[in-house]
Computed example of a mutant assay.
Amino acid sequence: MIAHAHEIPGDAAWSAPVRAGRTITLTALADGANASMLIIGADRLDRLNIPDTLKSQMSARIKPGMVLMSDRGLALATVTASSLDWHDCLTGAFPSRLLLLELIKHGFGETDLHACINFFSKVAVADDPRASLAFIPDHAHAGDTVTLRADQDLLIFISTAPHPLSDEPAASVAVQLETPANVKDPDLRDEAVRALRLTRELIG
């Protein structure tokens, strides 16, 4: 059952509480879309921790079948499906003014800005002596989707500003919150399974 649907225009931001168990589906409405997302637990203690999420699941990107972990090792959300196998989480969001404006609405401030996920964007190591990061164009197209399941009550913050390394214009992104009848865990690494188990034990 669809609980809420919203379209975020390009170069805009949006935020919302999401109850545990609901799914969050983002849809790119134009080629080159980017959706930078911050995730904070509704208890305001758990924040998305990109380094722990990546090292525990042996990855340098966000992809289907990954659990997004907090700095306490709890599961915030699980990526249950995606039309893309690569979402950037190494380059952050800049400028961050849009995310900051949404954070302020919920009583947060500049110190609450932390590493985010740039859904629909791909950044890889460039073939140069410095092994610098390079934006990969033509990665996402209109209609691409990614779906997360909230594993605890969350606050989500989304900016549709262009990726900081991209020259492409801002594009709109649709957000759909849904209460599914049943969403099974995808195939997960042992570390992700432990994070989910700990979260369910502590939070229910």
Score class of each variant (00 low, 15 high):
V193W: 06
E191T: 12
E178S: 15
T160F: 02
D112M: 04
R61V: 15
G32Q: 05
I117N: 09
T199F: 05
L155T: 07
D46Q: 09
F94H: 15
A28E: 08
F94D: 14
A77H: 07
T53V: 01
A131V: 01
P186M: 01
G143V: 07
L100I: 08
A81I: 00
G65E: 03
H106E: 10
M1C: 07
E110I: 09
N49F: 12
E102A: 03
D153Q: 11
G204Q: 15
N34Q: 12
H141R: 15
W86Y: 15
H4A: 07
S172C: 04
A20P: 10
A81W: 09
A170E: 03
A20I: 09
A140I: 00
G10M: 11
T78S: 10
Q57L: 03
G10I: 06
K122I: 02
A126G: 12
M37E: 08
T23L: 07
E191G: 04
A192Q: 09
R197G: 06
S132P: 06
T91Q: 13
K105E: 12
N34L: 01
R19D: 14
I50D: 11
A93S: 13
L54A: 12
I40S: 01
V123H: 06
A12K: 14
H106G: 01
R61D: 11
S159W: 04
I117W: 09
L68F: 05
D43K: 03
I203S: 12
P9L: 04
I158S: 06
R72Y: 14
R189H: 11
S172Y: 00
S172P: 13
M1W: 12
H6P: 06
P64K: 02
V146A: 02
I2V: 15
K105G: 04
P95Q: 00
A33S: 13
G92C: 03
L177T: 04
I8T: 04
P9G: 06
H106A: 01
D138G: 03
A12D: 15
F157N: 13
